[in-house]
Amino acid sequence: MAEALLAARGLHTYYGASHILNGVDFAVGRGECIGLMGRNGMGKTTLLRSMLGLVRPRQGSVEVRGRDMTRAAPHAIARAGIAFVPEGRGIFPNLTVRENLVMAARPGVDGRREWGYERVLATFPRLGERLDNGGAQLSGGEQQMLTIGRALMTNPDLLILDEATEGLAPLIAREIWNIIRGIRASGIATVIVDKNYGAVLGLADRCVVLVKGCVVFTGTPGQLADNEEMMQRYLGV
């Protein structure tokens, strides 16, 4: 792989005394789609948060496009082209839908303006009907669309989706998956954490499995699906 868009090396992260990440290496290349997998409490979200600057790893490094950003502020990492759709969505309830969308809008790192207000509304027509509503008045699915739309408005090179379909009705979840597929096809790299392993395997170029803060598997979705031990023991499938 050429220079990685985002790369973590030997990350050790603690929450108080508990050792959550135990020397994790992780990399995402341009346009690549990675399924980050593992059961609950294995460190997936902590790995994402460590790379985004939201928690400080005690050891190890984080690089964005080859530039060291281990101790960088979260906003600097975001401005290096990395957008985050967090678990629980992170809508601003005191901003309207329109404000949620435009508050962080900016061209990409290389000046790209592929994603603007009109395109996001064309992708998520339901948001267009609710522009003046407060963020908290939306349904779960609409909130998820808003968070993804808001992330796209920053014209990122990498979109990180943590449990994007959690708690959504199957029909809405399918809509979100279609959107994620479209984003992937547009050339934006993605990291997907989701309990729907089938959908992740169908979408990812590469899968990474975390167990107790260590990477135990890296390979293609095909290799992972064929690895029965991995699927049963570590993913419970």
Binding site: P74, A78, R79, F84, G90, P93, N94, L95, M103, A104
Partner: peptide, 14 residues
């Protein structure tokens, strides 16, 4: 306003 409701999210949006 965004920072007052969710500081971390605001930061992660740049």
């Amino acid at each position: 306003r965004a920072g007052s409701s969710n500081r971390e999210m605001a930061q992660s949006l740049g």
